[in-house]
Write a protein that binds this DNA or RNA. Structure first.
Length: 483
RNA sequence: GGGUUGGUAGCUCAAUGGUAGAGCAGCGGCCUUUUAAGCCGUUGGUUGCGAGUUCGAGCCUCGCCCAACCCA
């Protein structure tokens, strides 16, 4: 990237030439009277405007020329005439490059072909671009450049910009929805002495002044529950989690979670919350409850119908649908054999519940395209939830699956400190995982019964925005640093 | 970690083991309502990096780097 080529040399020469004429093409300030879109919407012949934007096209007619400038709102055509600007300014205008930032003052008019345009009376070069832009109309295809230099992607591919503007809208509506329901947004530490709330490998860092190691958080859960103890009855946090694991189409080492906790709620109230939230997001941002995913040719490959009410089915019943009504009556050895026969890969060391979970993850979850609340998971899977009164093997939880992925787990949260300690100690097992004693002490002070949810915001955005890779909903996805 | 595919001009892509090309962009010229403007001319390459085979390698072989996809 520190390379050079003739195109860059030419632009540097133009910069030098401007400086020789006493022009500084990097201005401190220029105040547009309005955006390009506002100018277009408030068009009247002869109205004077002052606009700014990046030059995205250049059509030279000899003694006059057109350029397109673009700001975030849209595009505006600028018309420059030699006898309107004067000989030397016109010569300078003529040598502007694609991607330069231009400020222009002029009057609005409509061309013969009916396009609203600005006839330039004067102009200012706001920022000279010293490198050529990637493409005029092809767009930028190279995934490596798109991800490493996202700004070029955003300039070249309007649909990419649209995705990220919608992601921003999703986050905004998410906050609005929760605040409207009485939830308070909080911020809790990303650096934790003991990373808890999930089973994942953490990133480690070191604090010099304190002389100790910290871990980047792998979940938001435990600090938020402390706030329930502290009397904040409805809290949520939207923040980054960090997991030191593999990268894939669905995994980025840092990813965004929403977690929300409601005192006096349970897993059922949280199902209502998830359903209401996701429907609100789809309606307010996309204006529809039916999401279509398309391939690169534009063919619809998948349709997700978010219309409520969403299906609710217990984990066991769902497993029986795929693995046989007698699945839970088989012996563990029979289950292992049948799971392999069905096509799930079963590790040597898998415990019995993991065999069933492998069937769920490999054979069932990918088929759950329309929203499905899978309730009552086996208790071994989830140590932070309350046991179900109906089935002591299960916990009062749901996993909301949409688009073949887990999007949102929700629990009736465990608030019995004795029970919680046993479950965590059992989970820690031989791994010598440290218990978060302060969390357990907090529970001993008393936590109200509560429901909680977590939503993987990136995966939610993938589902809502029709993107097949997490890298296409994260502005700066993690790549190996280029040497 | 394993497999597959790919990396050629600023961008998008070509090129039987035999002189590295096109379109666009760029540069120069003509053109005062164009819009993928048009017309004429023209510059631009360490073919990801490094070895090897060969009279000759973008192409074949080996190693490495980066990316995408699939698998673990």
């Amino acid at each position: 990237m520190d390379d050079t080529n003739s195109l860059i040399e030419q632009r540097r020469a133009k910069l030098a030439s401007l400086r020789e004429r006493g022009i500084d093409p990097f201005r401190n300030k220029f105040t547009p009277s309005e955006s390009c879109l506002e100018a277009r919407e408030n068009y009247s012949e002869g109205r004077e405007v002052q606009l700014a934007g990046r030059i995205t096209a250049h059509r030279d007619m000899g003694k006059s020329l057109f350029v397109d400038i673009r700001d975030q709102s849209g595009r505006m055509q600028v018309y420059a005439q030699k006898n309107a600007l004067g000989e030397e300014p016109f010569e300078i205008f003529k040598h502007l490059d694609l991607a330069d930032f231009l400020g222009v003052k002029g009057t609005m008019f409509t061309t013969k072909t009916g396009e609203i345009s600005v006839k330039a009376e004067s102009f200012v070069i706001l920022a000279k671009s010293l490198r050529p832009p990637p493409a005029k109309w092809h767009g930028l295809e190279d995934t490596e450049i798109r991800y490493r230099q996202r700004y070029l992607d955003l300039i070249s591919n309007p649909e990419v910009k649209e995705v990220f503007l919608k992601r921003s809208a999703i986050l905004r509506e998410m906050r609005g929805f929760l605040e409207h329901r009485g939830y308070t947004e909080v911020e809790t530490p990303m650096m934790q002495a003991i990373p808890g709330g999930a089973a994942a490998r953490p990133f480690k860092t070191h604090h010099n002044a304190l002389g100790c190691d910290f871990y980047l958080r792998i979940a938001l859960e435990l600090p938020l529950k402390r706030l329930l103890v502290g009397g904040l009855d409805r809290v949520f946090e939207i923040g980054r989690n960090f997991r030191n694991e593999g990268l894939s189409r669905r995994h980025n080492p840092e990813f965004t979670m929403l977690e929300a906790y409601q005192a006096y709620g349970d897993y059922e109230s949280m199902m209502e919350l998830v359903q209401g939230l996701v429907c609100h997001l789809a309606e307010s941002v996309l204006d529809t409850l039916v999401i279509e995913h398309k391939d690169t040719e534009g063919n619809v490959v998948r349709t997700i119908d978010l219309n409520p009410p969403w299906r609710r089915v217990t984990y066991k019943n769902l497993v029986r649908e795929t693995a046989g009504a007698d699945w839970f009556e088989l012996t563990p050895a029979q289950r292992r054999e049948k799971a392999s026969a069905l096509g799930a890969e079963i590790g040597e060391a898998y415990e019995d519940f993991e065999v069933t979970q492998a069937v769920f993850e490999k054979l069932i979850e990918p088929t759950l395209i329309n929203p499905t609340f899978v309730t009552h998971a086996p208790k071994q899977l989830i140590p932070l939830a309350k046991l179900s009164p109906d089935d002591p093997d299960c916990v009062e939880v749901f996993e909301c699956c949409i688009n073949g992925q887990e999007i949102a787990p929700g629990y009736t949260e465990q608030n019995d400190p004795i029970e919680q300690r046993e479950r965590l100690e059992h989970q820690a097992g031989g791994e010598q995982q440290k218990l978060d004693e302060d969390f357990l002490i907090a529970l001993e002070h008393g936590m109200p019964p509560a429901g909680g949810i977590g939503i993987g915001v990136d995966r939610l955005c993938m589902m809502l925005l029709g993107q097949e890779s997490i890298r296409d909903v994260v502005l700066f996805p993690q790549l190996r640093p280029k040497t």
